[in-house]
Amino acid sequence: MSKTKNSFNHFAWEYFEGLEKTQKGNTLIRKKGRLELICSYIGNEPISEIGSPRMLEVLLDIQANSLNKAGKPTDKAERCAGIASDVFIYAGARGFCSSNPAALIKSQLAKSSYGHRPAITHPKDFAKLLRAIETIVGDPNTINSLRLLALLFVRNGDLRRMRWADVELATGRWQLKPLKGQGKVNMVKDQVVPLPDQAVAILHKQQKINGHTEYVFFSQTAKKHQIISENTANKRLKDLGYQNIHCAHGFRATAKTLLQEQLKYPLVLVEMALGHTTKDPNGTAYGRFEYIDDRSDMMQKWADYLDALREGRDTTEFRADAQNKADSTAQLKALIDQLGEDKVLELLKNKD
């Protein structure tokens, strides 16, 4: 690998050394892979002599070799263009190139396509999955992680990295910095997840198992990060017969759909629960503690709703508008008791 003073390689890996001081984990690994791929094409070329036509040629080739199962392009070429652009900016700031050829290429690439990850969005089908999860035997880490994914619908990576230091069982709060929130404008950098009673009970069980460790889902068999593998949840779902039907990330789509369609909660509360940035009509972003009472109520109703689904009970009472209907019914009954049914019917008829 050539790292002469003016080569793309030189600036690429000098730039990457800076990233290593501020980033870590899978994000850094992915960026390193993209840099290695870009460098395999233009690493030995003088950075000041790489123009837009050359970058377009490189990125179109990467795009052609990065197709999904449906034969459509993924976002690999776009992401490679992004990190190449960062390298050109880094070199340009130091006076070694006068343009950023990668910045012009993104609009010339085909729109990436991954498709939706599999998720169950029908209540009866989700009830079957919830019951199936309870049949899992073996490592309690596994079943408790799946239970919490259903209850809290956070990303699997964030749940696996849950630390006891970030959890307040007494108040039912979990404060975290979502992995995907670091550097993405549509994801919150700090998030507070209200914990329903059912989640607190599960965490008390985990405390008896892993309370002496840093992580809620500590695993003695995990060599690298000392937490359960990112494939643990998906493997168990596959074992239960849900391959290509529902995945660990699918709990988020399930919750988003059922909270809005079945429980009738407003989009703003659901989006905040998902860790997405949410703004009011004036463009002001909501803070992590905004609507915390409403969100706590929603998370408890969601947990109670899941219990009812699993047990095959009626779920009507968990709709967000159920209390308004109950109040209206009570008011009507009181009016009938006071005036009589005939008088009330006459009043309603005249109103029409």
Rank of each mutant, 00 (worst) to 15 (best):
A93Y: 02
L151E: 12
E78V: 11
A201F: 11
Q63L: 04
P101W: 07
E134Y: 04
Q262F: 00
A102R: 12
A77V: 03
K72S: 03
Q243I: 09
H122G: 08
E17W: 08
G33E: 06
T316V: 08
H212F: 07
H122Q: 15
A326Y: 03
A103K: 11
E230W: 00
E57N: 04
L176D: 07
V193Q: 08
L28I: 08
E36K: 15
R319I: 14
E214M: 00
V216Q: 02
W174K: 02
K32T: 06
D314H: 11
K349S: 15
R161V: 00
A248P: 13
R30F: 01
K111L: 14
D61C: 02
L348R: 10
A334G: 06
G275F: 10
V270G: 04
R236V: 02
P123C: 06
N6L: 12
R161F: 08
N231Q: 15
T171D: 14
Y41D: 11
T232V: 13
K279C: 10
P266N: 12
D321Y: 05
A93Q: 01
L258H: 00
P140R: 11
A64P: 04
G18Y: 13
E57G: 06
R252K: 08
R155V: 10
A165Q: 13
R173S: 00
P194V: 07
H225N: 14
K3N: 10
